[in-house]
Amino acid sequence: MQVFDIIGPVMIGPSSSHTAGACRLGRVTRKILGDRPVKARIGLCGSFAQTYRGHGTDKAIIAGILDMHTYDARLRHALELAGEEGLTYEFYQTSIPGAHPNTAILELTGEKGGTCRVVGASIGGGNIIVTNINGLEVQFTGQYNTLIVLHQDTPGVIAAVTNTMAYSGANIGNFRLSRPQKGGEAVMTIEVDGDVSDKMISWLRELPHITGVVLVRAI
């Protein structure tokens, strides 16, 4: 825990979990898409579904998808700004048995045609936890700089990634691998201490069998 977890974050109100956390879920999803989103479909569960209008949860999620930070004053006008930026969106209510009460399912389509589907929850104080990307189970909070490395499950890929990180001087705080099927699509979730250089990310992207590298920066 750090002092700025308590005196902070600076955010647009009214609720750290329903507004700031919601914005961060939207922003993480945009980062994972890695493109300018043109279409968003957002499912809200539990408490999100019941109180989203009064808390501005819908505005906050759209603001995040438009790449705004939790402290961006434009957040409260995000629904109008979406129109100007060519983003169409749709909200629906849903439920996931056993999920955290503030869970959202975010599906984005980018202007180049790419799509992504992210499931995450806002767990209090503006903190989030992302639990699923494109059907692959992940687990990260966004409290640390986090690398999402999508790859083909092949011997040596993890070693290549961690060697590259070691060479760059990056210290791994947490590592998680999700691989539904041997030889199929897999994802590494790597939380890193300190900063992550652009150079290291471009080196990772050039490694064989890597299909995508996304850096989700800590707040």
Partner: peptide
């Protein structure tokens, strides 16, 4: 009140209690 009106505040420690500090 500014928090409730979607204004910019510092959660301290939370948004709900942001007026006390």
């Amino acid at each position: 009140e500014y928090n409730a009106a979607m204004g910019k505040i510092v959660a301290a420690p939370t948004a709900g209690s942001c007026g006390i500090l």
